[in-house]
Simulated scan of single mutants.
Amino acid sequence: MIELINIGRQFGDVWAVRDLNLTINKGEFCVLVGTSGCGKSTTLRMINRLIEHSAGEIHIDGQPIRGFREEVLRRRIGYVIQNIGLFPHWTVARNIGLVPRLLGWKPERIAARVDELMALLGMSTERFSGKYPRQLSGGQAQRIGVARALAADPDILLMDEPFGALDPLTRDGLQDELLSLHHRLNKTIVFVTHDMDEALRLADRLVVMHEGRVRQQGSPIELLREPADDFVESLLGGNSRGLKEAALTPVSQRMRPAAVTSDAPVIEATKSLREALSLMLWHRVDHLNVVDGVSKNTVMPADPAHILGGLKLADIVTARAPVGAPGGAQP
């Protein structure tokens, strides 16, 4: 658990963060969002003492972080940034093994951990371990940055706009991988982004900051439905909040138990209502068959063996799942 208690950070006469209170539970994916200069990156860096807090206390598992030596604290917390920070003259394997070497791990244990992490992130050890950062694509380099942050198996992972410089396709793929990693490894993740769609897709808890303070926090669905004020509503998309909520709601929550019609276009049950609406608009229909994901055919007719149910336009626009229902992308 991470606790920020009345935290403040002052730069000269300016308070970048003031009176900030936030509790991040073990295993939670917490995303900090807000306009530029709102204090979200400063808050992230105070957790691992890259920036010292000027007021208040920060606790990790009940212990004040100033009770840890700085280097020990930082080795316990994985840290990923936008420009990755890989050492250009080191191979991929050596970059990943940095923290374990500092911790005195034996070479064979480091090598095994490098192999494990590269496999976890879908990168062949034989193909990539001997490469240098300049030989990697942006997405590949960012995967190595994540692997390096996870190398010593930290409980906490801090990520400061890690996908901000990547193209949309690569970014979407890495978001999927990060969600999958989170579900498998149960790490506590604190993630900073300026991209609201990314924040809504990833967060268990969404924290909106403004002028150094927390303006509102809660699940993405809670904030979309009940923004605290005009600022939060605007940041979340204003009149497009309905579409953003649809992007978080899986088709499985709204489908009917039987197929609507045998010749309707199909959509997988794990896809979002926003994708279902787009498919309806594209095919000029008001109903879809919902399939189990085994069938790769997205047009008609669907294989009856794979049909789970049906979805009508009315199911999207009239029904509403309860606030506590799960949202976000599925691993």
Rank of each mutant, 00 (worst) to 15 (best):
108 E>G: 10
261 T>M: 12
34 G>H: 08
52 E>K: 05
147 A>F: 06
140 Q>W: 02
153 D>L: 10
187 K>Q: 11
302 A>F: 03
223 L>G: 05
88 P>N: 10
209 M>Y: 06
211 E>Y: 02
111 A>M: 10
173 G>Q: 15
105 W>G: 04
61 D>Y: 07
129 S>H: 13
247 A>E: 02
124 S>C: 00
116 E>S: 12
329 A>G: 15
248 L>S: 02
66 R>I: 09
73 L>R: 00
110 I>P: 01
227 P>T: 04
16 A>G: 04
114 V>I: 14
24 I>M: 07
168 P>R: 12
283 H>D: 08
318 T>K: 04
163 F>T: 13
232 V>G: 05
311 L>H: 02
319 A>L: 14
292 D>C: 14
14 V>P: 03
90 W>F: 15
40 K>W: 00
269 A>E: 15
178 L>K: 01
131 K>V: 03
170 T>C: 12
10 Q>C: 04
156 I>C: 00
176 D>S: 09
254 R>W: 08
102 L>C: 09
43 T>G: 01
225 R>G: 07
171 R>F: 12
297 N>A: 13
234 S>C: 11
22 L>R: 11
242 G>P: 01
87 F>G: 08
24 I>A: 09
276 A>M: 00
218 G>M: 10
93 A>Y: 09
242 G>F: 00
221 I>R: 15
101 R>I: 10
78 G>P: 03
321 A>M: 11
112 A>W: 08
288 L>I: 08
250 P>M: 12
208 V>H: 01
86 L>V: 11
246 A>V: 01
121 L>D: 02
143 R>W: 01
311 L>I: 07
183 H>K: 14
305 A>Y: 12
160 D>C: 03
197 D>K: 05
52 E>V: 09
175 Q>R: 15
308 L>E: 12
198 E>A: 03
151 A>K: 06
72 V>Q: 13
192 V>F: 00
95 N>K: 08
174 L>W: 05
206 L>F: 03
17 V>C: 03
90 W>P: 04
134 R>K: 14
130 G>Y: 01
65 I>E: 05
212 G>S: 02
153 D>V: 09
28 E>T: 07
250 P>C: 13
131 K>S: 08
213 R>F: 02
211 E>I: 00
167 D>C: 05
199 A>G: 06
186 N>L: 07
23 T>D: 15
318 T>A: 08
224 L>H: 03
223 L>E: 03
305 A>N: 14
202 L>H: 01
11 F>G: 04
52 E>I: 07
105 W>A: 13
331 P>V: 11
271 K>C: 12
21 N>H: 13
292 D>Y: 11
275 E>C: 05
193 T>L: 01
324 G>M: 02
277 L>S: 07
303 D>P: 01
312 K>Q: 14
230 D>T: 11
63 Q>V: 15
304 P>E: 09
259 A>M: 08
271 K>Y: 11
99 V>D: 02
266 V>M: 13
30 C>A: 15
233 E>L: 06
210 H>V: 04
153 D>K: 14
152 A>R: 01
111 A>V: 08
318 T>V: 06
75 R>N: 13
1 M>C: 09
116 E>L: 10
239 N>Q: 13
287 H>F: 02
